[in-house]
């Protein structure tokens, strides 16, 4: 299915879920309302016409405050359907004051570790995740390294870091 068709299908099934569409991007993506994400994830996976069986990648990004926008975090889900061979990017933008995003680990088990990584490096809190712990950094690490305003701490447990 082409991006426009996909979008039409999703809009018909879940009205109001898609806030923005970006067909012009290198990898076309849609912006989704946070509250609608769990329903949308199930639709994307289970609808035979969509059938996104593979979550290729789950990334988090930090979008620093600009003139027009406040400080935000984004969680991007890149999906692929092995049967229909179509791809879709799904993005959720969160305010960094309230970085809570619904977890999709129950829909695609591979999201488990990817969500832990995004939590670890960016501080996105995936609600409903079975075991949200740091994964790459030590459990007692301070801060989230991939945030643009991250400052490397001077010491870690008394050891100088430099």
């Amino acid at each position: 299915m082409e991006f426009a068709e996909l979008l039409g299908h999703i809009r018909a099934a879940l009205p109001g879920a898609v806030l923005e569409e970006h067909p012009e991007a290198f990898s076309p993506w849609i912006l989704v309302a946070r509250a609608q994400l769990p329903a949308l994830a199930l639709l994307l996976r289970d609808d035979p016409a969509l059938d996104f069986a593979q979550l290729m990648c789950l990334s988090g990004t930090h979008l620093p405050a600009s003139a027009s926008e406040s400080d935000r975090l984004a969680s991007i889900f890149h999906l692929f359907s092995p049967r229909h061979r179509h791809k879709l990017g799904v993005k959720v933008v969160l305010d960094s004051a309230d970085p809570a995003c619904p977890s999709v680990a129950g829909v695609w088990p591979t999201a488990d570790w990817h969500e832990r990584e995004a939590y670890d490096l960016l501080g996105i809190v995936y609600e409903g995740h079975p075991d949200l712990r740091r994964i790459l950094c030590p459990d007692d690490w301070e801060g989230h390294p991939l945030r643009k305003d991250y400052v490397t701490p001077a010491t870690y447990n008394g050891m100088p870091l430099d």
Binding site: A25, S27, W29, M56, C57, T61, G89
Partner: peptide
């Protein structure tokens, strides 16, 4: 300007680069 998710097949499988 833009973002891309590009994947290639390495010996271990799908290596994806998501570049913004």
């Amino acid at each position: 300007v833009g973002e891309l998710y590009c994947r290639t097949e390495t010996p271990r499988g799908e290596l994806g680069y998501y570049i913004v």
